[in-house]
Design a protein around this nucleic acid. Structure first.
Lengths: 176, 176
DNA sequence: CCGCACTGGTTCAGTGAACGAACCAAATGA
DNA sequence: TCATTTGGTTCGTTCACTGAACCAGTGCGG
């Protein structure tokens, strides 16, 4: 079974959501997918996750319709691409990330800002642009790395280096 | 250690948040706390969670400053009350819950609506009142049970019965 | 003041999941 | 043809979750 741990008997939509994305690593995989990561190897390099667990989680996410597995754009391998259902997980990732940023700040400063692509203004915790006031959909978000990602204790794998530049959410990363 | 599973090396605020609330059961405990559950026994009855795990999670949440353990209002036992840091988890619980409601609807209808207490209008996925447009803080949310909670397959424990009536978020439940 | 029930735990054996290293196979491409 | 890239699978060890049983402090009735 793809979801070996269930919250049976919980007559609750939060529990249903957690059955899909509540397992260890799953939401970090979705976060990376929102950031543009698409290849098995890239998830693995960026997350330091055991390969068996990654294979299991990717399979479960495809099974549940959050990701889709397509032929790789470069000819080799596959791409794991977010479906609309997966993109709708963005508010969850955003609120998690902003809660962590608020209560566990790095001494080096902010990790990442989320900005409204047109306005260049930050989003608030509810996903509203602090300049124009609109609720910003995932496709209109630009992720801007903060000072905490530039220090010497930053990760040096290719994915982390690609994520150290500002980039549009959902756009495939160009791994250098 | 209170958090036996860490995401070490993840230079990311979402990972830090998941270290605190990412373990199995933890977010369901926070959800219940937002709904007004405060007693060990009530969490246990409502969640069907092993007592050892519940004790571990409550201890970890107190340790991390999400809950506070205070003398029970009724004279006996303790109350686990959300801190401000814990109340700030509401956007996470809300977005999880609404994602689950959107993609895993019950055939009996909606489980719960979240409404703006003054307006009696529903919140959207970003926590804005669909009538007045404001971003609604947790304290101004009223939870209205939907048809899916009223059927014959609803849970019958005292906590579930108390939650089957509309109630204000954060206000202590009166268990009948 | 004694004993009982309520509350909030802890302990323990059995099971299942995560970890990390090694191995494997299909497909490109030199 | 053979090496490399990619995306896995296998397997032994470790660790966490489960469920049942046991335990201790506190109020309260008698």
């Amino acid at each position: 079974m793809a979801l070996p741990r269930e919250y049976t008997g919980q007559n609750c939509s939060a529990a249903r959501a957690l059955e899909v994305v509540g397992e260890r690593w799953t939401l970090l995989i979705v976060r990376d997918a929102l950031y543009g990561v698409r290849r098995f190897t890239d998830f693995q390099a960026h997350l330091d996750i055991p390969r068996a667990v990654l294979a299991d989680r990717l399979g479960a996410l495809v099974e549940s319709g959050v990701l889709e597995r397509v032929r790789g754009a470069t000819g080799r391998g596959h791409d794991y691409v977010l479906t609309d259902k997966g993109i709708e997980l963005w508010p969850i990732v955003r609120s998690l990330s902003m809660w962590g940023e608020q209560f566990y700040p790095s001494d080096k400063g902010v990790h990442r800002f989320y900005t409204h692509t047109g306005c260049d203004a930050e989003l608030d915790v509810n996903g509203r642009c602090t300049k124009c006031g609109q609720s910003v959909p995932a496709a209109d978000v630009t992720v801007v790395p903060g000072p905490a990602l530039r220090g010497q204790n930053a990760r040096t794998d290719p994915v982390s280096r690609a994520l150290a530049a500002p980039h549009r959410l959902l756009e495939p990363l160009t791994i250098g």
